[in-house]
């Protein structure tokens, strides 16, 4: 109860702080979802991506 009271009083009680919470929360949430998605895709597709195999193709010496 103490936690929810603290959260309510700090983040949602005033309209201004609630609006700020929504905006900041949306940004953080989106960045989190993006990072999570990328990590899942990179983990599942490990070995397939260019960043995993780029070292196998060293740049050709200029001739």
């Amino acid at each position: 109860m103490a936690v929810s009271n603290f959260v309510y009083n700090t983040f949602f009680k005033k309209s201004s702080s609630a609006a700020l919470t929504v905006v900041v929360g949306a940004i953080l949430f989106e960045r989190g979802v993006d990072a999570f998605t990328d990590s899942v895709f990179e983990y599942y597709n490990r070995g397939r991506l260019w960043k995993n195999i780029a070292h196998l193709y060293p740049p050709k010496p200029e001739d």
Partner: peptide, 8 residues
């Protein structure tokens, strides 16, 4: 669902 192209 989440498979990507194989770069090699």
């Amino acid at each position: 669902a989440i498979g990507l192209y194989d770069a090699a």
